[in-house]
Design a protein around this nucleic acid. Sequence first.
DNA 1: AAGCTGACTATGG
DNA 2: GCCATAGCCAGCT
Length: 119
Amino acid sequence: MKPIKLSEKNKDFFSHVYEVVKQIPEGRVTSYGAVAKYLGTARGARMVGWAMNGSHFHPEYIPAHRVLNRNGLLTGKHQFSDPSEMQRRLEAEGIEIKDDKVVDLKKHYWDPGIELKYE
DNA sequence: AAGCTGACTATGG
DNA sequence: GCCATAGCCAGCT
């Protein structure tokens, strides 16, 4: 696995992303866009996904499986060593998955902008 | 250097 | 509600 090159500005962005993702409670999920918005939308949802891609470089555990796209679709499952692992983890937390999507997303949705507020 | 890609989203038909 | 477009931005070819 090739290390991800981090420029000065996205190091800061990555840190913020990890900080938010680590605070997602068990059994809850959020979206890339929500995290991006919480961080100011400066670099967009795609960069949140990129941050997740580099999450395994982070010394701490990042529950990347709790971050989905806005439809609750498990778009990132293929980035896991085993694609089924993402779904299994979510199900283990009480989230029902059907056809790679979260069932009743609203019930499990966790918006950092609302739940966390800006610190 | 220019173009493509992607764990995205919002918008318009 | 599905499909196409267009912004988005860092990394890779």
